[in-house]
Amino acid sequence: MTAKMIRWAAAAIGLGIALSTSFAAAEETATEFPLLKPTRQEWSFAGFFGQYDQAQLQRGYHIYKEVCSSCHSMKLVKFRNLADEGGPGFTEEQVKALAAEFTIMDGPNDEGEMFERPRLPSDPFPSPYPNDKAASFSNGGAIPPDLSLIAKARAVHRGFPQFVFDMFWPYQEQGPDYIASLLTGYQDPPPEGVEVPEGTYYNPHFMNGISLRMPPPIDDDLLEYTDGTPQTKEQYAKDVAAFLMWAAEPHLDARKALGLKVMLYLIVFAGILYFAKRQVWRGVPH
C-alpha cells in the first residue's frame, strides 16, 4: 500500500519535471536579448564534410581589410596564415604584398631608435588603435572588440530543448550566423515608441541590448567584387562572417577531414571487436 502511494507520488513528480523542462523554452520573457534570433544560413563549412570556400574567404578578407579593420584589431591572426592550407589560399607572393600594405613599429635599431617598417608575413594583422584607452576614446566609450576569435566568442543561447538536439546534429556555426544577422540587422529608423540611447544604433539582432555603438558598417555596392558575386549587403555580411570563422578556427578543414578518417577507423574497429567479443563469449551463458 505504502509502496503504491510512493510510486504514484514519484511518478507525479517525474511527470511534473518532464513537463516543466519541455515548456521552459516557451516561457521566455520579452526582455531576453537578442530580440530576434540569428537567421540560420547555409555555410560551406557546416556539416560533416564541410570545408571553407577559398573564394569566399578571400572576399571576406577584402571586406575585413576595407571595412572592419578601420576600428577592429585582429591580433592573433598573422599575414602568413592567409597562405596556410585550409585558409583563403593566397600565394606566398600575394601574402607578402598584402602584409607590406601595412607598417609595424620595430626596433630599436643600432642607434636605439624605434622605426617603422613594412609588415612581413610573420607579423600580425594591424591594430587600428595603439591601446584600449585610445580605442575607447575614439568610439564614445566602447572598445571595438578584437575580431580574432569573435566567431567562437559569440553564440546566442539556444535554450532547452534545442541544445539537446544540437548534441546529436551539430550546430557549430552559431557565431557566423550571429555576425551575419547583426551586420544586416540594423533598422533605421527604429520601430515606433522605441527609445534608442544617443550615439547608438537600433539592432534587434544585438545580443546585449536593443542598440549598439557600431554604426551599420556595410551597404549594397560598398565594395567591388571582381568575380561576379552579387554586391549586396547580405552577401558582404556572409562573406566576412565566413572569413571571421576561419580566423577563429583556422584548422577546421583539417579537423573535419581527420575526423572522418578517425570515425571510420573506430567504427570498423568496434565492429571487429564486437565479433571478437561474441566469439570469446560463445558457449558461456551470461
Partner: peptide, 8 residues
C-alpha cells in the same frame, strides 16, 4: 576466434 582476436 583466433582470426578475430588477431585482427582486433
Amino acid at each position: 576466434r583466433d582470426f578475430l582476436l588477431h585482427a582486433a
